[in-house]
Design a protein around this nucleic acid. Structure first.
Length: 470
DNA sequence: TAGCTCGTTGGACAA
DNA sequence: TTTGTCCAACGAGCT
C-alpha cells in the first residue's frame, strides 16, 4: 500500500490534482497552503493500463515532472477515484479539508459533486476552485440568461468580460507545508507501463512544464505575428502546439493569456484559446453532445458500417495523400495539425460516411492532447451535426486542400514518403498520373472517388433533412 | 415584437 | 489564372 511516511499531522488539507498538474496559477493548492498547517498532494490514476491511450504516455511524464517539482512529495494512488479517496479520508482522521480545481466534463462533474457532498456529511471542509478555464461556463450568457450556441457572440461576450489574471502563486516557504510521502509513489509513477507504439513520442515532445513554457515563449517571439496565416499550413511550424500542456493543466489558459495579451497581433491566437473555452462551455451546458448529435436530424443519418475502411483511415492507407499524411502524423507523433484534423474528419464522415463518433474515439485513443470537450465539438462541427456547424454542403476536398495549404508537398512528403517522387498537383492526386508518369506501386488506390463520395454524402443529407427530391 | 443580419476554417462552376 | 456567385434554409442573436 502506497502511503504517507507517517500519520498525518493535525490541520492537514488534501489537494486533489487532476487536470491541473502545476504548482503555479493553482487556486486550490494556494488556498490549502494559505489556510492549513500541512498539505497532502494527491493524484489518483484511473487509466486502464492494459490498453492505454496515447496520452497516458504524456500523463506519466507530467506526473514525474510534477512530483519532481514537489520534491517527490506527490502521493500517487490508483483505482476508482472516489473509492480511493474515501478510504484515504477514512484512514486519516487528521484530514480536515479537501480542495480541488473544477473539471467540467460529464460524468466527472456529477462525481465531484457527489464526493463533495460525501465529504461535507463527514464534517470535512471542501471547496472547488476555477483553475482550468478563462471563464466559468455559467458566467457567460445571453441577455435572457440562456447559454450561447454560436461562437462569435460568445466570443464577443467573453472579450467584454476580459481575460482573468493568473492566481497568485504560493510562496516557496508555503510549499514547505507539503507533506512527504513514501518513495513508493515515485516508483509507481516511473513503473507505469508504456507501449511500444508510443516510443517515438519522445522524439517530438518533452512533456515537462519547463519545456512547455519554453515553447510558449519561443512561439510568442517567433510565430505569433504570422500566426493567422501560417497556422493553416501543416508543413511549417506556425502553431503553438500547446494543447497537451493545456489538456493536463501543466500550463493554464490564464497563464497563456497573461503572457500573450500585451503583445501585438495576439488576438487571433487568443481567439483560438476562446474556442477551447467555447468547447468546454458547450459540453457543460449540453452534456449529451458527447455522444448525441446536437442537430436531431443527424440521428437518422445512415452511417456506413465499414470496418475495413475505418481501419484504412486509421492506418493512413486511404489512398488520399493529405488524409494519409495526417493519420500517420497522428500515429507517430500523437498530434495532428488542426487543418488536417478537419480534412481527415470531413473525409471520414462525409466521403466515407462513417459515424463521427468512430473518428472521435480514434482521436481520443491516439492524440496526446485528447480532450473530450474540444474533440467532440470538433467532430460534430466537421460532421455537420454540431452547434454552429459547417453547412452540409461544405465537404472538404482533400486534394484541393492539399494543393492550397501544402502546395510544395512538404507535409505530405514527410509522412507519405512513397509519394516523394511526385511533383506539383500530382502529389495530391496520385490516382491521376499525368502523361508519361507511372502510377505509384506501393500506394493504395483511393477508398472512394472524391466526387463520388461527395455526391453520396450530399444525397444522404438531402434525405435526412427532408429535401430528398427522388 | 418584428425584422434584420449573420454564421471559423469550402467547392463547383461560369465568366 | 483569377474572381464572383451560388449552394438551403434556418435559427441565433441583436436592435
Amino acid at each position: 500500500m502506497i502511503s504517507t511516511l507517517s500519520p498525518l499531522p493535525p490541520d492537514t488539507a488534501l489537494v486533489w490534482f487532476r487536470n491541473d498538474l502545476r504548482l503555479q496559477d493553482n487556486p486550490a493548492l494556494a488556498y490549502a497552503l494559505r489556510n492549513h498547517a500541512c498539505v497532502l498532494c494527491v493524484y489518483v490514476d484511473t487509466i486502464d493500463w492494459s490498453d492505454p491511450p496515447a496520452n497516458a504516455w504524456w500523463l506519466r511524464e507530467a506526473l514525474r515532472d510534477l512530483s519532481q517539482q514537489l520534491d517527490q512529495r506527490l502521493l500517487f494512488l490508483r483505482g476508482e477515484e472516489q473509492a480511493v479517496l474515501q478510504s484515504l479520508v477514512a484512514e486519516n482522521p487528521a484530514l480536515e479539508a479537501v480542495y480541488w480545481n473544477r473539471r467540467y466534463e460529464p460524468p466527472l462533474r456529477e462525481q465531484d459533486a457527489a464526493f463533495k457532498q460525501w465529504l461535507r456529511e463527514r464534517g470535512l471542509k471542501v471547496a472547488s476552485f476555477p483553475g482550468n478555464l478563462l471563464f466559468e461556463p455559467w458566467e457567460i450568457n445571453k441577455a435572457d440568461g440562456s447559454p450561447y450556441r454560436v461562437f462569435t457572440p460568445f466570443y464577443k461576450a467573453a472579450r467584454s468580460v476580459g481575460y482573468v489574471e493568473p492566481h497568485p502563486d504560493a510562496s516557496a516557504q508555503d510549499l514547505q507545508k507539503v507533506i512527504g510521502v513514501s518513495p513508493a509513489s515515485r516508483e509507481a509513477i516511473a513503473a507505469l507501463p508504456q507501449r511500444a507504439w508510443m516510443r517515438g513520442f519522445a522524439d517530438h515532445w518533452e512533456p515537462t512544464r519547463a519545456a512547455g513554457m519554453q515553447r510558449l515563449v519561443k512561439f510568442s517571439e517567433m510565430s505569433l505575428r504570422d500566426y493567422d496565416e501560417r497556422r493553416h499550413i501543416p508543413g511549417v511550424p506556425g502553431c503553438s502546439r500547446m494543447s497537451p500542456w493545456l489538456h493536463f493543466g501543466q500550463i493554464s489558459p490564464r497563464e497563456i493569456a497573461a503572457l500573450l495579451k500585451p503583445l501585438p497581433d495576439a488576438e487571433p491566437y487568443l481567439r483560438e484559446l476562446v474556442w477551447r473555452e467555447f468547447a468546454h462551455y458547450i459540453l457543460y451546458h449540453w452534456p449529451d453532445s458527447v455522444d448525441s448529435p446536437m442537430d436531431d436530424r443527424f440521428k437518422a443519418m445512415p452511417w456506413r458500417d465499414a470496418p475495413d475502411e475505418l481501419r484504412r483511415w486509421q492506418q493512413g492507407q486511404t489512398g488520399i495523400p493529405l488524409v494519409d499524411a495526417g493519420m500517420r502524423e497522428l500515429w507517430h507523433t500523437g498530434f495532428m495539425h488542426n487543418r488536417v484534423r478537419m480534412v481527415v474528419a470531413s473525409f471520414l464522415t462525409k466521403h466515407l460516411m462513417i459515424d463521427w463518433r468512430e473518428g472521435a474515439r480514434w482521436f481520443e485513443y491516439t492524440l496526446l492532447d485528447a480532450d473530450l470537450a474540444n474533440n467532440r465539438m470538433g467532430w460534430q462541427w466537421c460532421a455537420g451535426s454540431g452547434v454552429d456547424a459547417a453547412p452540409y454542403f461544405r465537404v472538404f476536398n482533400p486534394a484541393l486542400q492539399g494543393e492550397r495549404f501544402d502546395p510544395d508537398g512538404v507535409y505530405v512528403r514527410r509522412w507519405v514518403p512513397e509519394l516523394a517522387q511526385l511533383r506539383g498537383k500530382q502529389l495530391h492526386r496520385p490516382w491521376n498520373p499525368g502523361k508519361g508518369a507511372k502510377r505509384i506501386a506501393n500506394y493504395p488506390s483511393p477508398l472512394v472517388g472524391l466526387d463520388e463520395g461527395r455526391q453520396r454524402a450530399l444525397q444522404q443529407w438531402a434525405r435526412i433533412s427532408g429535401r430528398d427530391s427522388s
